[in-house]
Amino acid sequence: MAMEDDMFRNLKEKPVTIQFPYEHVEPVEGVRAKVSWDIDKCIGCRLCVTICPGNAIQLVGRGRQAEIKYNVGRCILCGECVDVCPTKAIYATKEFEIVFNNRRGMITHFRRKKRKRTS
């Protein structure tokens, strides 16, 4: 018995565990989480597609008309695409509780506004 002093001290204390669904921890500054696109800034340079380790990003179309298909299920949340983007079109969010009911929900399409108006 060498731990009794600590054990008795802990009897008075509250549990350190956070009761998750009821309590939430605020993500720290600069947490690596889901990324999002400001699609109007995107120039379709494919740098993010080349660097993505999990092949989570797909480019549909070419150049400034290109649209982004982003699969969170494949994303490993490394944030390399945010660093590599030359026009800062990709930005990091703080959304790290990522849960889906079906696979289709994992894929997000980032479409350009102009194209919507014409069609």
């Binding site: 720290v28 600069g30 947490v31 690596r32 490993i76 949340l77 944030g79 660093d83």
Partner: peptide, 20 residues
């Protein structure tokens, strides 16, 4: 977590230095 933004698989080291 504070330094790298992640609790595991920190993504700190990269070719040519560190990221943060």
């Amino acid at each position: 977590d504070m330094i790298s933004g992640k609790r595991v698989n920190y993504g700190m080291s990269t070719i040519g230095g560190v990221r943060r």
